[in-house]
Amino acid sequence: MPGGDGFYPPTMYAPIWAILGAILLILVAAWYAFVWWWSHKRHRMPGPPPAADPFLEAARLKSKYYGLIEEVEEAWRAEELSTRAAHQKLGTLVRFFVFESSGRKAQVMTLEDLNQANLRSVADAVEQYYPAEFAAVDQGDVPYSADVAREVVGTWS
């Protein structure tokens, strides 16, 4: 009987276990490196867009909203929109134009908020749209309201 004095000699392990352990540690480290690289690459915030000429940008934005106002007016003439819906869309367009051109959150402001924010031309237009938007029957002059929207877009600076 080996080790008759109560002690047993150390057991020898095959070198394959040390190699497998090292490979496992390398794979775990590679996995963490890969996950960090993949998430870092995919979720990086985009840089700011190149600076555009503010005058060209303003002209492009005004042209866009003139076209949208014209679409609302044409849809109303083709009887695809009611007078109420046309006024609601015009009010929305005016508010979003202000938001896109200045960053002021006019699209979520009430009429009182617009007045307090000193957005007088927008507040006047929205106030003019309110009777047609909330009337019990269709009423209002869509061509005149479209002209009011065009005036707001044209005079905005």
Rank of each mutant, 00 (worst) to 15 (best):
E80V: 03
A123K: 03
G140C: 04
Y66I: 06
K62N: 06
V98W: 00
Y66L: 11
V152S: 02
R95F: 01
G154Y: 00
S121A: 13
Y8C: 04
R84H: 09
I69S: 00
N118A: 10
S101T: 07
M109L: 07
L27E: 01
E79I: 03
M109K: 04
L24F: 12
G91N: 09
I69D: 00
V94C: 12
R60C: 02
E71H: 13
G91V: 01
S121I: 09
E79N: 13
V142Q: 01
Y129A: 12
R42I: 01
V142S: 00
A18V: 08
P131C: 09
F134L: 09
A85L: 07
V142R: 02
P9L: 11
R42G: 05
L93C: 03
E73H: 08
L56G: 09
V153Q: 00
G91C: 06
A22E: 08
S102T: 15
W31S: 14
W37P: 01
A132I: 00
A14I: 05
A75Q: 14
P9F: 09
K64L: 14
A136G: 07
A22D: 05
Y130L: 12
E80T: 04
R95T: 03
V122F: 00
W36L: 12
A132P: 02
F99S: 10
A135S: 15
P10D: 09
P10S: 06
K62Y: 05
A132N: 03
Y13H: 12
G47H: 13
N118L: 06
Y32K: 13
V126F: 01
Y129G: 02
V72W: 00
A22W: 10
Y66D: 11
Q107C: 04
E74N: 14
D138E: 15
A117E: 10
S39V: 03
L81N: 01
L114P: 02
V28F: 15
F34T: 08
P9M: 10
R42M: 10
L81E: 01
L24Q: 10
W36N: 12
A14S: 12
K41G: 12
K41Q: 15
K62E: 09
W36R: 15
E57D: 10
D147Q: 14
A14F: 08
W17A: 09
E79Y: 06
D124T: 05
K105G: 06
A33D: 07
L90M: 07
I69A: 01
Y144N: 08
G103R: 10
W37R: 14
V126N: 00
A125D: 02
A22R: 07
Q107H: 14
P143F: 06
I16R: 10
A146K: 00
